[in-house]
Simulated assay, not measured.
Amino acid sequence: MDQNRANGGALTPEARELLRALDRGAQGPAPLAGSTGGTPAPDSCNVVTCTARQAAQLLACSPGFVRRLARSGRLQGHKAGPVWLIDRTSLDAYRFGETTHDHIAGTSAAA
């Protein structure tokens, strides 16, 4: 007579595969090649960012315009999931008319 799992019988191959898949999922994603220690944060952990919505309030424009500025490279930023995070220093440089080169050199465009 066949034994079923309720009385100590063997698992079916399908049940065994399901348990393996659940175990793999519980262990988290496999590391990507070349990313053994994880991906470092952009530049430094001291980078202060704001969301595209917050940046838009400061610039008096739409969040979509801020996202376009970030995609074009006029603002430094990156996506974290669905949210754009904008580098606050880059945002301030844009707000006050400094070019990226001027900002790095510590001078203003008006000087």
Rank of each mutant, 00 (worst) to 15 (best):
P40I: 02
R68C: 11
P42Q: 09
L85Y: 02
R16L: 14
N46I: 02
L18E: 14
A26D: 11
A60G: 04
A60F: 09
G64S: 14
T51S: 06
G73Q: 05
A111S: 13
L58Q: 11
V83G: 01
D87R: 05
P40C: 01
S62K: 11
D92W: 10
S72V: 03
A93L: 04
N4R: 12
H101E: 15
P31N: 09
R16M: 13
S108K: 15
P82E: 08
G106W: 00
A52P: 10
R67P: 03
C61A: 06
A55Y: 01
L91T: 00
R67S: 14
T100K: 12
H103I: 09
G73N: 05
A10I: 07
L59M: 10
A70Q: 00
G9E: 02
T100G: 08
V66Y: 01
T36K: 13
R24K: 08
A52E: 02
A56P: 00
E14S: 13
I86S: 01
R16D: 10
A80S: 14
N46S: 11
G81E: 01
A56T: 03
T39C: 10
T39A: 09
L75V: 01
G64N: 12
S35M: 13
E17F: 06
S44I: 02
L59G: 04
P29F: 00
H103F: 09
A6W: 06
H103Q: 13
T49P: 01
S62M: 04
F65M: 05
G97P: 05
L58N: 06
G73L: 02
E98H: 15
P42W: 04
P40V: 03
P82V: 04
D102I: 10
G106Y: 01
R67W: 06
K79F: 15
L91A: 00
R53G: 05
L19A: 12
T39G: 08
R68P: 04
D92T: 12
D102Q: 15
S44R: 11
S108G: 15
A10Y: 14
G97S: 06
D92N: 15
E98D: 15
G25R: 12
P13I: 05
L18K: 08
A6L: 10
A109V: 08
N46P: 00
T39Y: 14
M1R: 09
R20D: 13
G81Y: 00
A6F: 07
T39D: 09
N46T: 05
V83A: 08
D102K: 14
A60I: 05
R24C: 04
I104M: 09
A93P: 06
K79S: 11
C45I: 11
G8A: 00
S35D: 09
P40R: 08
Q76V: 04
G64E: 07
A70G: 03
P31Q: 10
L11E: 10
L11W: 14
D2E: 13
R74I: 10
R88P: 03
L85N: 06
